[in-house]
């Protein structure tokens, strides 16, 4: 088990190193950073002095080494537009995005799993059919459209929930502002979280449903019934756990994309998260932010994949011996 995890971590480090290389190359090849930082009236001597100060005249390898060293210490340089350290900018935005992603993932799992189990067990009930048709809407409508519909209905017409922003936030320590502790913060997160999680919920529900249908036909379920086990333990102990491996794979990947690509939802709801920061960075060719965002996204995916791999082994004992050996 230990060997397995350390091997996985080693592989994750390799991936991160390659991503760091790509993100570093962004600096080298997408325009001259000095041009981005100074005005037109700067003299060539001043430019040269700046180059020297930024270390842009050093050999490429030295620069890369310096970049990686910085990245490990969360130092991604200064943003061109804001003239502030990128780490601070992202650090201020990250909690908003993480909270939104977390809320929508919870929403997707808490609703998706029971709905999947229900529709898998009661294939022909009218409720299953309704879940399936509603979920079709969730999968086929684009996120921004659902978001706008929600705003129109719940914010404009009914005036129940706010249409933009995070509401009041409370500072937890010096890095983290949370919206979970105030009523207005909780109210504000409902619509964006549902908008962002609807697609994942549908996916999880359909996946669990398909897996449930498959598992309920297996012999060990029949044998569990023949031993007189009540439905509750047949469904939730023996059947559901056996559906988990594919569900974890997909959920893990989806969670990564929720965090990394919350951009559209954040734009629709004016959510002050990383998505908006990234959009601004793209518009203004703010390469340090883009590079850091690239690294962060890669890190999130690699990290989630690592968790998924470990969860496989926790859930399925058959993989323990095989993977342990493999």
């Amino acid at each position: 088990m230990f060997g397995f995890i350390s091997r996985r971590i080693a592989m994750a480090l390799v991936v991160m190193f390659v991503v760091a290389l790509i993100s570093f190359l962004l600096f080298r090849f997408v325009g001259d950073p000095v041009n981005q930082m100074v005005g037109i009236e700067t003299t060539p001597e001043q430019r040269e002095a700046l180059r020297q100060r930024l270390g842009l005249n050093d050999p490429v390898l030295v620069q890369f080494f310096r970049y990686v060293l910085g990245a490990i210490q969360f130092d991604f340089g200064n943003s061109y537009q804001f003239k502030q350290p990128v780490a601070d900018l992202i650090g201020r935005r990250l909690p908003a995005t993480l909270e939104l992603s977390f809320a929508s993932a919870i929403f997707a799992l808490l609703l998706g799993i029971p709905m999947g189990v229900y529709t898998g067990l009661n294939r022909d009930s009218w409720l299953s059919k309704m879940f399936l048709s509603v979920s079709l809407v969730g999968i086929s409508l684009p996120t921004f459209f659902i978001g706008i519909l929600f705003i129109f209905f719940f914010s404009v017409t009914l005036q129940w929930l706010p249409s933009f922003g995070r509401g009041e936030v409370v500072a937890l320590g010096s890095f983290w502002d949370t919206g979970f502790l105030t009523i207005s913060g909780l109210k504000a997160i409902i619509l964006p979280a549902i908008t962002l999680g609807l697609y994942q919920m549908t996916l999880i529900m359909r996946l669990i449903r398909a897996e449930m249908l498959e598992v309920m036909r297996t012999d060990h379920i029949k044998f569990a019934r023949a031993r007189g086990l009540p439905n509750r333990s047949v469904y939730y102990i023996h059947a559901l756990k056996n559906t988990m491996v594919p569900v974890i794979t997909i959920t893990g990947l989806q969670l990564g994309s929720i965090i990394a690509f919350a951009i559209i939802t954040e734009t629709v709801f004016q959510w002050p998260g990383m998505g908006i920061l990234f959009l601004q960075a793209v518009q203004n060719v703010d390469i340090p932010i883009m590079a850091a965002y690239l690294l962060l996204t890669a890190f999130i995916f690699v990290f989630i994949n690592l968790i998924v791999d470990i969860l496989y082994v926790v859930i399925d004992p058959r993989l323990r011996t095989e993977r342990g050996r493999a």
Binding site: T218, D219, H220, K222, F223, A224, R225, A226, R227, G228, L229, H238, K241, N242, I315, D316, P317, R318
Partner: peptide, 19 residues
């Protein structure tokens, strides 16, 4: 079931919950 009537199935490889 299980208490007064027990049952044994054909395929031992699939009759037990693998997890």
């Amino acid at each position: 079931r299980g208490k007064r009537i027990g049952m044994i199935f054909q395929d031992p490889l699939t009759s037990l919950d693998p997890l």
